[in-house]
Each structure stands twice: as C-alpha cells, then as structure tokens.
Design a protein around this nucleic acid. Structure first.
Lengths: 346, 346
DNA sequence: GGCTGTCTTGACAGCGCTGTCACAGGGTCG
DNA sequence: CGACCCTGTGACAGCGCTGTCAAGACAGCC
C-alpha cells in the first residue's frame, strides 16, 4: 500500500525533487537526458503523483467540477462520460456536483464546492449555465468556468461557452413533419427553467411560419421534461375537437409519454399519429416504434466544454464553439392518414 | 476567494489550531465552553476545512470511492444518489469510478485510484463485487471496502457486504405469473458476468418446480442486460411451436425489449402475452402498458453500503445487512387468454 | 576579459491540516 | 501524602508536492 514519492524518485534518479516535479508536469526546461533518467526512475518505482499534495501545494488542484441539475439519467451519464474522457486524457481529476439550479445561494454553494477541494474550474451545464446572476458571482469570485448554452453563436457573449443550437434542430424536426404532410402538429413543451425549451419552441414556430402554417395556441402544451407531462399533454391534444396528426415532444421522455398516451387511447403510431422527440436517448431507440428525434451528443458536447475549460486554466486562449443536433428519422413518424380514412377516436 | 484557515479560527478563538481541529472533527475531549468559543469563531469567519490538506495530513482523505460497471443509466444515477446522500450526511467526500469489471489488472487500477487520492475506502457494486480474486487483492493491499452482492445472507461471508436477495424476488415474480394461470413462462436471462442473473434464474426455476411445472430449456434464452437482447430473445420465444403466454425479463430493459417485440409482432400486452421485468426503473413506469417488476431501491441499498463502509473506517463494528426487492404489479401482466380464444400469430 | 542573457538545476519555504507526545491541573486511592 | 490516572490542551513535526528565487554553466557580445 505504500507508494513511492517524488523524493524517492529524485534520489533514485540522482536529481532534486523539483526536477522530478518538472518532468511529471511536462515542463520543458529540463534537459532531454535528465528527463529520460527521471522517467526511468518513475517507471522503476511505479511512481504516481499524490493528487492531494499537488492540489494543496499548487495554485489549484488540477481537478474540475461538473455541475448539473437534470432529471434525465441518460443525459447525466452521457455528460459524465464526456467530462471523464476529457479529464482522463488531460490528466485532470473530476468531481461531479448535482445541484438545484433554482436554489438561492447557488453561487455560494458552488464557491464552497470549489474552495473545499481547490477545484481548478467548473463546467456548467444547462440550466445552471443560464442563471446570469450566478455566472456573474462566480466570475467575481474568480472561479474559471465554461458553460454549455442552448443558443446559436453569439459574438457578444461575455463568458466562454459551447453553443448547442436547439432552435435549429427543432426547426429540422418540425420541417420533417411538415414535409410528410402534417399541418396540425402538437408541441409538448419542456421545463421553463431551461432556455432550451424556449429555443425548441422557437424552432417549431419558425418552421410552421416558413411553411405557411399559423402556430395555434391550443396545440402548444406546457409541461416539464418528464414522462407524465408527455402523457397528460398528449391526452389533452387527442381530446381537441380537431386533434393534431403529429406531436413533437420537447425531449424523448416527453415523447415517450405521448407514445404511451397514444397507445393507451388505442391510436396506432405512426399511422394514426406521428410522434417525434428530441435528444436521441436510449428511450427513443427502446420504444416501439422507435422515435424520430434530434441527436444531441451530450457526451461530445461536454467533453468539448471540459477541454475548453482545461485549456483556459492552462492559460491558453480558446474560442467558443457550436454544435448542431442532427435529425434522426425512425419509425414513429409517417405521412398522416388520408382524411377520408381517418378513424374515429374514442 | 480567500478563505479562512484553521489557524485563523484558532487565533480568533484564542486556542491552538489543534483544538480547532478537534472541534471540527467532533472529537469529544474538548470542554463544552471551549467548543462553543471555537464554533462561534468558525461561524464568524465562515470557515470550511480544506479537504486536500486534511487528506494529505491525515491517514486518509475522508473520501470514499463508488465503483461500478453497469450499462444502465438509471441504475448508476440511483447508486450515485445513494452514495452521495450517505457521504453528505457523514461529511465524507465521494469519488465515482466507472470501470471494466472484466479487465485484467482491475485490482491494481483500483489501488491506484485509492492511492492517488488517498481514498478511505471503496463501495463495490455488482459485478465488481463478485470478482473474488480482485477482492482478495484489495484486501491484501489493505483497502477497506464494502460490497453489494446478489445473494441471500451468508453467515460465512468473509468480506463485509450488503445482500440483495434476487432469487427471492424472482421467485415472487414467477409465482405471480403462475398464480395468474400461466404455465409456459419464458425467461430472458441477463449478463453472465452478473451473479444476479444466475440468482434470478434460480428463483424462476424454483418457483416453477414448487408449482409443479418442469422448467423447459427452450423457454430460457440467454442474453445481456440490454434492450436488443430482450427484443431478439422475445422474438425467438414467439416463434416457438408452442410459445409462452408470459415472459419474465431479467431486468426492465430486457422486458422493454420484449414489450417492443410483442408490439412489433402485433401481439397485445397483456392480453396476448404478459411481460414482467425486474428493477423498477423508470423504464417500467414509462412503457405502455407499465411493467410488472420487482422494486429494487439501488439508492437505498448503496446508501446503506456507504454508511457501513464509513462506519468501518471509523473503527465501529458493523453487521452485514440484507434487502429483499418487492413485487410491483402493473398493467403488463394478466391471466392468459383462454385457449379456445387464443389468436393466431403472424 | 568582462558583461549579459539563456538554459538547467536545486534549496527552501510553505500549502492547511492531523498524529504524536508532552504537560498542567485536578481527582482518586491505599 | 505520594503514586496514579484522567481530562483538556498545545507544541511540533511532518504529509508530498509546487512556487520562488538563486546560482552554476555556458554562449555570445562588445
């Protein structure tokens, strides 16, 4: 259980501890030959740096925190994997921090989190990344962060971020439904705290307008990013005098709820009604029929953000980046049933 | 960003740093009055201990690691939440460690993980907790751990653990199906690496035998804990000359696959075929019809295990504990269709 | 030759905390 | 009344690493 320390390596290589430290941290001001000698000693002693000591001694702990507030397990896991991939690759530690983005004192909670472990910086995911006041305070505390935001690129953005253009993807999904011939398309909206749901709604409306369809209030239902709201919302839509022939759920879980509602109402998907989701979570593949959706690679997006953060911490300059989710067409969407053959509901 | 240290608190309270340390760590050999004074100073200075320093200085870092190897996002999140609840409550840090339980050098990887951050101990979840050789090595390295295992209580168990009696729960599910009148019951088995799947199979067979039904080889299909294997396995069962009237999937994801297979084959659940899962993940609630399953509270189980681990680290003696998942009946199971009225398939 | 600048290297002082040990003060016991 | 123990407290030495600064070696220059 005992393991070698810097000093052991130094003795073995016949150099000072500081020089070993330099080699370990990839500083360049070490002669090639010395470096080799040190590396050999490290190898022989099976040395691995003690992260606590490094963090205590240095200006920061070479560890970043991933902050999220999300009910979606798949999404969280994907984000964790992405952050882990970046950290493993760049030799940084990683801490996870679930939180309540609406709680008062969020910024202070995060500051404590950073301070206690001397974190080098934070990756802020939605919706925490959208709390402007919190961002300002974090910045004031001097905590480096990179945020992931749901928006198109904005040249005036004052904090570093990775953009995910939800509007664009929602537009693509809606356009797909319109292309199939749907006109009455229901929209099940997700959590108000998430700017993403506003963006997706915008994409939906923009597409309708561009195709000459006037968005109708009764077709847009409020709700949260959960199955039950998808279920209830869809039932409300089915109960309309003129129900929609297609439903666009703001994420896959909502769409899964809508799918269940359709099935429970004896409607066949996609023949009686088309259903589309958003996210491409396993949900969308594991339902029957599998869901048409927008693929949003949370793992890749978060990995990118984490790399950006670490680059910043290292003092490199980095540019903001953008991602566009892509349309994935599966079995849950099809052309509407011809009017004449439409079956009576209930 | 600067924060108070032990020394600051000590000065303010007019005591030595060591005494403050004692108060912070809840040692009892401090006079009540002194303790109050220190607590007041801590409050006034908004002091929070630096975890890195504590870890570096002390024998261990007051932080435990949660080790898992699981493809199931819900399950992982539940485990993380459970571990977090225990750690938050007991003032310990927590590190997550996804890994490959079949990889060679697993024990060494975990040792490195522990050493680098001076972790106090590990919570080992299935299937890592079932790798006997790995456990032996961890014990040899002197790393404290608590494992979660799928088995009934065993008085001869040599390592500390939390038991989850999968056999029992699988028995209950199978008995439920038998009670409904099913005789031909298919079983879709999950990953071979998991001892749990053997236990569940055992519960299935035991129940059949107790009800006078001979387990039939053709009704038991091998596979992994994934949707696709559930889908394929169910299709194989439907293709039998005499197909089952009920299917028991080894977990909810497999059952979801079976459900999709039934729907894609035009079979109505539960009228043409009953389907049951295991785990009570959101899957089982979010499918249509919702799945009959066994509720296994991974969060509570892992929380329990984490508390046990911390108690051990603190030198307290703790007993092993057991959990029994409970049957949850939902809409996916019903009595079989009377023979005469059975519909032709395909 | 002396001066400056660059490249490598090492000595040393912490980072903020805890483990160990020592010690003062007061009670108990034979 | 001395030996002994218990309680409460503090001094001090690290834990393993990095930041700072200084110094040696050597090259290039006037």
């Amino acid at each position: 259980m005992e393991s070698a320390t810097l000093a052991d390596v130094a003795t073995r290589a016949g150099v000072s501890a500081k020089t070993v430290s330099r080699v370990v941290n990839g500083e360049r001001s070490v002669r090639q030959e010395t470096r080799q000698r040190v590396l050999r000693a490290i190898e022989q002693l099976d040395y691995r740096p003690n992260l606590l000591a490094r963090g205590l001694s240095g200006a920061h702990a070479y560890t970043v925190g991933l902050v999220y507030d999300n009910p979606n397990a798949y999404y969280i896991i994907a984000m964790q994997q992405g952050a882990l991939a970046a950290c493993d690759d760049l030799n940084f530690g990683l801490q996870f921090r679930p939180c309540d983005s609406t709680a008062p004192g969020l910024a202070e909670g995060l500051r404590d989190f950073v301070q206690r472990s001397r974190l080098s910086g934070l990756v802020l995911t939605t919706p925490v990344s959208e709390r402007t006041a919190t961002l300002e305070r974090l910045a004031a505390y001097g905590i480096p962060f990179v945020r992931i935001v749901s928006a198109a690129r904005d040249p005036h953005e004052k904090f570093p971020c990775v953009y995910v253009d939800d509007r664009d993807a929602a537009y693509a999904i809606t356009a797909h439904l319109l292309h199939l011939g749907h006109v009455r398309i229901g929209f099940l909206r997700g959590g108000k705290h998430h700017h993403a749901s506003a963006e997706r709604l915008k994409g939906y409306k923009d597409a309708l307008r561009d195709y000459g369809v006037t968005p109708s209030r009764e077709l847009m239902v409020e709700g949260d990013y959960v199955f039950d709201d998808g279920f209830r919302g869809a039932r409300r839509l089915f109960d309309l005098a003129e129900p929609p022939t297609a439903i666009f759920g703001c994420n896959d879980e909502i769409a899964a709820g809508a799918l269940a509602a359709a099935q429970s109402a004896g409607l066949s998907v996609p023949y009686d009604v088309s259903i589309a989701g958003f996210e491409d979570s396993p949900f969308s593949r594991h339902s029957w029929p599998p869901l048409t959706t927008a693929r949003q690679r949370a793992d890749i997006i978060v990995e990118r953000a984490t790399r950006m953060l670490i680059a910043r911490i290292r003092g490199e300059t980095v540019d903001n980046e953008g991602f566009n989710p892509e349309l994935v067409v599966r079995g849950s969407t099809a052309p509407p049933r011809p009017k004449s053959r439409q079956r009576k509901r209930r």
